[in-house]
């Protein structure tokens, strides 16, 4: 059982981590609380499904096209909706939630509410230290790790990454460095949508697809982000790992535990908000205005 917890825990927490950093990134930079983040994940998953199962394209091609389409959709949502009401954070939350529900209803109308599945990207399994690990699991974990590493390299090593971090920390001062803040926000939205899409590419074959599949991951990443500290990328990763494993342990070890999946994250969120509202890595910002 221990090895199953380890493998499944890594798969779950890796996916949540990629989703959570994307959510955290756009919140930190553009102050957009994007409730539609996991809906982007769902849209990619369904696009891949349509590509592989209905149109008969190979997985890789469907994946690339779906990621591109999702990024495009995310950018359109940002430019047409979020950006216009950015100053009003509640409006951003409501509008993004509406986008998510709209996506759900459109999928329900076009593809019906049946559970669907995507065939694994790679079949078969490999023996690692006496444990049979599915190639698909390996693909998911390595894909998540590579994505997180890529994001870290982008944020710390490139000029664009420094601009993104500068805007996240002090958007007004970033202007003075010649950084085009609205363009950086738009690019960040693209990256954030791309991260949600990549999470779907690596994890969708493990998930039953249905138009309500955005809700559970949304509560999970909200909890992970609260646990790690709102706006902290590092915190989101650790929050996702902790919750991913907590969820896996409950599902695997507790009889009938799969019904408690969502309860783990919500309980964790409530506990954190009571005990340490700023989260594990959160910074309490003292206001230092003029």
């Amino acid at each position: 059982m221990l090895e199953r917890i380890l493998v499944n825990g890594l798969v779950t927490s890796g996916t949540y981590a990629v989703l959570a950093v994307g959510f955290s990134l756009i919140f930190g930079v553009a102050k957009i609380f994007n409730m539609a983040h996991t809906a982007l994940y769902m849209i990619t998953a369904f696009l891949i499904f349509v590509g592989t199962n209905q149109l008969g394209f190979p997985y890789a091609l469907s994946a690339v096209v779906s990621v591109g389409a999702t990024i495009g959709f995310g950018l359109i949502c940002y430019a047409l909706l979020f950006d216009r009401v950015k100053v009003h954070q509640t409006a951003v939350m409501i509008i993004s939630l509406a986008v998510a529900m709209l996506g759900q209803e459109i999928l329900l109308l076009t593809l019906s509410g049946h559970y669907r599945g995507i065939a694994p990207f790679v079949t078969g399994s490999i023996d690692i230290l006496g444990v049979a690990v599915l190639y698909q699991h390996l693909f998911t974990v390595l894909g998540c790790l590579a994505t997180l590493f890529g994001l870290w390299a982008l944020l710390t090593k490139t000029n664009l990454g420094k601009a993104i971090r500068a805007v996240a920390q002090d958007s007004e001062t970033a202007n003075l460095m010649g950084i085009n803040v609205s363009r950086v926000c738009l690019i960040t939205m693209g990256i954030s949508a791309g991260l949600a899409a990549v999470a779907a590419v690596v994890a969708a074959p493990l998930e039953p697809l249905h138009p309500g599949m955005w809700m559970l991951p949304l509560t999970m990443i909200l909890a992970a982000v609260v646990l790690g500290g709102l706006g902290s990328i590092k915190g989101s990763v650790f929050g996702a790992i902790i919750l991913g494993f907590a969820e896996t342990i409950v599902v695997t070890a507790v009889p009938g535990g799969s019904f408690l999946r969502g309860a783990v994250s919500l309980a964790a969120m409530v506990l954190v908000l009571i005990a340490r509202p700023e989260g594990l890595f959160g910074v309490v910002f003292e206001e230092e205005r003029l």
Binding site: N159, K162, A163, R165, A166, Q169, D170, E172, T173, A174, M177, I179, V283
Partner: peptide, 14 residues
């Protein structure tokens, strides 16, 4: 108003 979570060098690079 330095970018508070960046190092001095990163501030200069920004």
């Amino acid at each position: 108003r330095p970018f508070r979570e960046m190092t001095v060098l990163e501030n200069l690079e920004a």
